[in-house]
Simulated scan of single mutants.
Amino acid sequence: MPENLLKNPNGDEDFEHWELIENGGDEWRIEEMPGDCGYDFSVDYSVTKYFCTSFEPCLKKQVINLLENGCDPETLDIAQPAVTVEDWYSGRTDCGCIYKLSVALLDENQEVIAEFNPDDVTLDPDTDDCSWKKVTHTFKDYGPGLRFISFEHGGEDTKFWKGWFGVRVTGSSVTIES
């Protein structure tokens, strides 16, 4: 299995390695699984924490320097190995939420080569299954020049409730095919 290039994907190290882009409402928080009105992460029981958003937008980002992570520039330019991103999100049983994800492959000047910007997902516990869901995308044939990857995600709740009733995220990963 390829190495996850994202550091601290589950909140085990507080917010180390993450840049808080938006920190609205009562700000980001880290909670223990399953949390209030939450769901177990039965995909991987070693994941015991998640990041939780509040009632205003909360977004966090990590930019991965591929050369600092041991990637060879020639291999990146010629072979253009597949880059796979994965993220897990869930809601609560008592409040709706919005999940956002944006991933970009960047060149040496951090200009965009390719992007994955899926539509925001709104979860409503009255009509949706708000348990843990996976989103995944694989970049292929993106062209030469890849040097950085920007991974940004987050969201908020839909009822503007004070506290941490927004989307929950964990298990994030960015891997490069070897």
Rank of each mutant, 00 (worst) to 15 (best):
D36S: 13
I64Q: 06
D40S: 10
Y50F: 15
R147G: 01
T84F: 00
G91V: 04
F148Q: 07
L106F: 10
I64A: 04
F151C: 00
E111C: 08
P34Q: 05
V103K: 08
L66S: 07
G145I: 01
R92Y: 01
G38A: 03
Y142I: 09
E3V: 14
Y50M: 14
D12P: 00
K7T: 06
D120E: 14
G171H: 11
I98Q: 10
E156I: 07
G24N: 10
A104H: 15
F15D: 07
P125C: 12
Q62R: 03
P73E: 11
D128F: 12
S131D: 15
D141K: 10
L6H: 03
Y39H: 15
V63D: 09
W18M: 00
V83H: 01
L76G: 05
P34R: 05
F41T: 03
E3T: 15
D44F: 01
E3L: 12
A104P: 02
W18I: 01
D124L: 04
V167F: 01
I149W: 06
S131I: 09
E31M: 07
D141V: 01
M1A: 15
H17Y: 15
P125E: 12
G155N: 06
L105R: 02
T84K: 09
T158N: 08
I30G: 00
E152H: 02
D87A: 13
E32H: 13
D36W: 12
D124M: 03
G163V: 01
D44I: 04
L66T: 07
P118H: 03
E152A: 10
S90Q: 07
E74I: 14
T122W: 04
G166A: 00
G70Y: 07
L67S: 12
A79Q: 13
D14E: 11
D87H: 11
F165Y: 15
E19W: 02
D36A: 13
K134V: 06
E152K: 12
I98S: 08
R92G: 08
T122M: 12
Y89C: 09
G91T: 01
C37N: 14
F151P: 07
D14Y: 09
D141P: 01
D36I: 14
D129F: 02
N4R: 07
N8K: 02
N4P: 10
T53F: 05
I149K: 02
I21C: 06
N117C: 12
S178L: 13
E68G: 00
L76V: 07
Y39F: 15
P34Y: 02
M33K: 07
F148M: 08
G166W: 02
F15R: 03
F41W: 06
D124C: 07
Y50C: 13
S102V: 08
Y45T: 15
S54W: 05
I149E: 08
K100Y: 11
F116D: 13
T175D: 04
H153N: 11
E115K: 09
L67T: 13
N10C: 13
D157Y: 10
E108S: 15
C58E: 04
Y89R: 02
P125K: 06
G24P: 04
T122K: 13
S102P: 03
D120C: 06
P73S: 08
W132K: 05
D119L: 14
